[in-house]
Every structure is written in C-alpha cells, then in structure tokens.
Amino acid sequence: MALTLVSYRVGLSVRDASRGHALAQPVLVAIVLTGGTILALDVDATTYADGVQVLSFWLGAATVALAVPLHRQAARLKGFVVPMLVAVPLGVVVSVCSVVLLARWTGAGEELVRTLSPKAATTPVSIQLSETAGGIPSLTAALAICVGILGAVAGPAVLTLARVTDRRARGLALGGVSHGIGASRALAEDETEGAFAGLSMGLTALATSLLLPLLLAVLL
C-alpha cells in the first residue's frame, strides 16, 4: 500500500513539474513505478492485491464522491439532458460495434472479441460484463485501464482539435471513453468538465450493461 501511495505522489509531482503535460498522468506514472517495482521484486499479483484491499475499498467511495461536483453543477444540466441521453447510448453503440467489427476484420477469435467489447465501461463493470459475455475478465480489466489512460492522455487534445469547447460536452466524452481515469483528468482541467465526466462514466456503464448483450447477439 505504501508503494502505491508513494508512486501516485510521485506522479502528482511529475505532473506539477511538467506543468500538466498530457503524458504526465499521475495514474500512468503510478502504474509504471508500482508495476516495475513489483516485477523487480518478483511479488505475486495476488499478494499485491491483498495488500491494497483498503485502497480498493476507498476507490469505490471516491467514485461515488464524483457526485459532489455534479451536485454543484446541477444548474448546468438545463438544456443538456436530452442531448446527453442521446449521446451516451450512441457512444456505447459506436464503441462496441467499432471494436467488434475491427477485431473480426483482423481475424480475432470470438472469445477475444467478447473480451474487447465492454472496454469502455468502468473497470469493475467491464470485468463483470466480460465474464457474462464469455470473454476473459482479467484481460478486459487490463484493456479497460489502457483505454482509460490513452483517453486521459490524448482525449483533451483530440477534443480541442475537433473544436469541442463546451465543458459539459468535453466531460461527457472523457467520462464515456476513459471512465475513472478520464474523469480524474477532466476534474483537474475544470470542475464542470469533471462533474459531467463522472456522470458520463456512470451512465456509460449502465448503457453498456443494457446494450452489450443485444449488440453482441446482432454482431456475432
């Protein structure tokens, strides 16, 4: 647990020293440092997981706490509810369909396709969806984390290039693609953006749970 906390503290320092450079994401730095140390010391993954159970518990509480900035930004929901309720399910459909079709096009087997399909949902949800769909939950978890990091690193720049300036829309996009890691990046950028990223993360997980079985039945 100390290793994980120190690694994340180093990640924060790297981010501050680099003046918020896109690649200096605290989570990414913490993963590299923690993972490298575990590999170097030949620590079993199960032993590490047992040692950070307290952090895992509080991660759930921290996710729920994303509702606090959303409550503060409740007035910003006016006129945005309908577009949001259209965008989130549509984003799930695009996410699932694109990865399934791309995987099939490159020759991936059905088990791998089912493993990839719930990648945009937050990690705990994607693990359960992968297991239900017949995928490999541990691989889905790794992919979901990688997607989250990639979205947190590249997402804001891509949105800026696409001229998406509305903080609500930016947060909705980051939360829908990069879940908790993206929400953390969005919250560091702007409170409104972070609030809508947290909301999008939850809605995307719900929409993925509802739509994934139907989409896989149609596509496979």
Rank of each mutant, 00 (worst) to 15 (best):
L5Y: 02
L5K: 02
V6Q: 13
S7H: 04
Y8R: 00
R9H: 01
L12A: 06
D16K: 14
G20N: 11
H21F: 00
A22K: 03
A22Q: 07
L23T: 08
L33Y: 00
G36M: 08
G36Q: 14
A40G: 13
A40C: 07
L41M: 14
T46L: 03
T47Y: 00
G51T: 11
G60N: 11
L70Y: 08
R72M: 10
Q73R: 06
A75D: 12
R76H: 07
V81T: 15
P83R: 12
L85R: 04
L85P: 04
G91L: 11
V94I: 15
C97R: 02
S98H: 04
L102P: 10
W105E: 11
W105V: 08
T106H: 08
T106F: 05
P118M: 15
V125W: 02
V125D: 04
S126E: 09
A133C: 00
P137D: 11
S138W: 01
A141H: 05
A142L: 09
I145N: 08
L150A: 15
L150C: 09
G155K: 03
P156R: 05
V158P: 04
R163S: 08
V164E: 03
R168E: 11
R170V: 05
L172R: 12
L174N: 02
G175W: 03
V177I: 14
H179M: 09
G180M: 05
R185E: 00
L187I: 07
E189Y: 04
T192L: 09
E193P: 00
G194S: 09
F196M: 10
G198N: 10
L199E: 04
G202D: 06
A205N: 13
A207V: 11
T208V: 08
T208R: 05
L210K: 09
L214Q: 13
L216H: 02
A217V: 02
V218Y: 06
